[in-house]
Measured scan of single mutants.
Amino acid sequence: QIFVKTLTGKTITLEVEPSDTIENVKAKIQDKEGIPPDQQRLIFAGKQLEDGRTLSDYNIQKESTLHLVL
């Protein structure tokens, strides 16, 4: 699982696999929060994550925290 922290300070927990794409993660966030993926920007280690890449591409491991910017 990974954590996604929103600007409001809320933390969302997501069940993911390293092979999941960023697009996939955004879809999971939409399921939980109702935020359309095209409004979501995910930041990890100061980098904006691209939809077509996977979590493992960015070396995002379990218990990692991503930041969600709208």
Rank of each mutant, 00 (worst) to 15 (best):
N59F: 08
L55M: 06
I29V: 05
Q30K: 11
T6F: 15
T13I: 13
L14Y: 02
I12N: 01
S64W: 05
T6V: 10
L70F: 10
G9T: 03
I43Y: 15
K26M: 06
E50P: 03
R53V: 07
P37V: 14
E23Y: 15
L55R: 00
V69N: 06
D57R: 03
N59H: 09
I60H: 01
P18R: 05
Q48F: 13
I12Q: 02
V4D: 01
L7M: 15
R41S: 10
L49D: 00
N59L: 07
G52C: 12
T6L: 15
R53W: 11
F44Q: 02
Q39N: 10
L66Y: 02
T6Y: 13
Q39V: 10
L49T: 03
T65N: 04
S64Q: 08
E63D: 15
Q40E: 02
D20N: 08
V4W: 01
K10W: 10
I22H: 01
K62L: 14
D31N: 10
P37Y: 13
E50H: 08
Y58M: 04
V16R: 02
T54E: 03
Q1M: 13
D51N: 11
L70I: 12
E33R: 05
K62P: 15
Q1W: 15
Q30E: 10
L42T: 00
L70C: 13
T65W: 08
Q61I: 13
P18I: 12
K26R: 05
G52L: 08
S64F: 09
D31K: 12
E23W: 15
V69R: 09
D31Y: 10
N24A: 14
K28M: 14
D20K: 02
Q40D: 01
Q40T: 05
D38V: 09
D20G: 03
E17T: 10
T65I: 12
T11L: 13
V16T: 05
Q1P: 09
S56N: 09
L68S: 01
K47C: 12
K10I: 09
H67W: 13
L14W: 01
T11I: 15
I2F: 04
E33G: 05
I43K: 06
E33L: 14
T13Q: 08
A27K: 15
D38C: 15
Q40N: 03
L66N: 01
K26F: 03
I43T: 10
V25I: 14
T8H: 13
I60C: 03
P18G: 10
D57I: 03
Q48I: 13
I22E: 00
I60G: 01
D31T: 10
V4Y: 02
K32P: 02
P36Q: 07
I29S: 01
Q48C: 15
L7V: 15
R41A: 08
F3K: 06
K5V: 15
L66F: 04
G9V: 02
I12G: 00
E23N: 08
Q39I: 10
T65C: 09
Q48N: 10
A27W: 14
I22F: 03
S64R: 04
E63V: 04
